[in-house]
Design a binder for these strands. Structure first.
Lengths: 244, 244
DNA sequence: CGTCATCTTGAGCGAGGTCAATGATGGTGG
DNA sequence: CCACCATCATTGACCTCGCTCAAGATGACG
């Protein structure tokens, strides 16, 4: 991702973009993609780079967050916890994704870095003004919010009704779809078993057992701990109980 | 809710609002609340009333919905199903709530009336134009989308990590909060046991057993099938595993 | 007062959680 | 280069919670 920082030409010459945003590797895929040079310049002035080390949090559950961000590099989780420590991962944010809340009230969730991470952060208080001044950004936010609602609905179906094996298979299919890997190629697993369990509403032991079972049945292969290969996609889809 | 239709003055005289919207009992609480008379007039021309009988669907999972709506009267559920018939309720919509999607792709969920229902519906194709012409509506949609995301996050924590008893107690507390009932008063239960089970990711038998257990323990009373009384709010909150 | 839908209760079972021991992996410093 | 340690993953034994199946009870309504 970050190598693009050294890319000399990104269309910048034509628009005379401000330096930092012009060099941003995720800009075109993010909220800032379609906006004018003037709007980008305005953003450039209020945004700043922030680095999170693995495990560090950007937003805490229960706190009123003062920052929103656009992820540049790394992997971030959203999660919610109960007082006794039980934790449910609510989703992941990948580069170019927007994280943060709009409403001025305690956050329903935590935002935590799963790897060392770089984001472009803005004060939350600046959001209303930005949205008002740049309706494009407002519409992009709206469209992304509805995408996320859709995604969470599918996840609620998984959490409410799918068996452990169905959940694990669904997650593998989702990683495969995201990676856009060709058939037979190894798909990277961005999560540990423990993190997969948090995301699926299961325990680490159950995730491990189900992976082993699918490997034993020849549905997948596990060349190492951080990747897998789909050996029988039809079987995996059937196990996942998903429309193909 | 609907009695307000007969209310003679709703600020209408000052603005000369078009007849139908002026008489709308949920307007001020809905997306249409804060907009100008001209904007309202524009909406009035493209919106129309639609009645759903109990069990009838407005939007089907898998179809590209051509309508969005604002609920006037009645109760509506959002739900998602697996091919084999397992179903998870994703949420409820109450009067003044907006239902429908923005994106032009198959809907992730079903929208079905739980009671006889009246909505104001618009062609989905009109939405982008409306949002562009009336930024207030766009911002109201955005704010509601984030509210719904927050609500779904809390529900994902429930589905992923809470026990059956915790789930039932959480739902009762939510009904109590919604109704705004004073302590000791009977809170109406808008759902059957079966519907509560669908919403909580449980079976009807488990819901029934947990309700009976809480009644036996003096935490709640069940004067009839469609209401309950909180007899020990602290205990109910504790059971629900929720911050007070 | 009969009929149908809804709800409750019981008995038994099985998926997944818990607890515990063992095995792999990878980074670090001697 | 390798010994050491921390982290991560696997596997087994056991148990519990919630599901399934089945039978009654209650309530709504003509």
């Amino acid at each position: 991702m970050y190598m693009e920082r050294n890319q000399p030409d990104f269309g910048a010459a034509e628009w005379s973009l401000p330096t930092r945003c012009a060099a941003c590797g995720v800009r075109m895929a993010s909220l800032c993609g379609g906006i004018s040079a003037a709007a980008l310049d305005a953003l450039n002035r209020i945004g700043r780079k922030r680095v999170l080390r693995r495990g560090e949090a950007l937003i805490w559950q229960g706190d009123v967050a003062d920052q929103v961000g656009i992820l540049h590099h790394g992997l971030v989780k959203l999660s919610a916890s109960l007082e006794d420590g039980r934790e449910q991962m609510l989703g992941l944010a990948f580069p170019a994704d927007f994280v943060g809340a709009i409403a001025d009230r305690p956050s329903s969730h935590c935002v935590t870095a799963l790897t060392d991470t770089e984001l472009c952060v803005f004060p939350r208080s600046a959001l209303p003004g930005i949205v008002e001044a740049h309706p494009d950004i407002g519409q992009a936010l709206l469209s992304r919010a509805y995408d996320e609602l859709d995604h969470m609905r599918r996840w609620m179906l998984l959490l409410g009704r799918k068996s452990a094996e169905e959940r694990v298979a669904s997650l593998l299919l989702q990683f495969a779809a995201r990676g856009g890997c060709m058939a037979g190629a190894a798909v990277p697993l961005p999560l540990t078993r423990q993190q997969m369990a948090e995301l699926l509403g299961l325990t680490i032991e159950t995730v491990s057992r189900k992976l082993t079972a699918m490997k034993r049945d020849g549905v997948i292969a596990l060349p190492d701990l951080r990747s897998f290969v789909i050996q029988d996609r039809a079987a995996l889809s059937t196990i996942a109980a998903e429309y193909p």
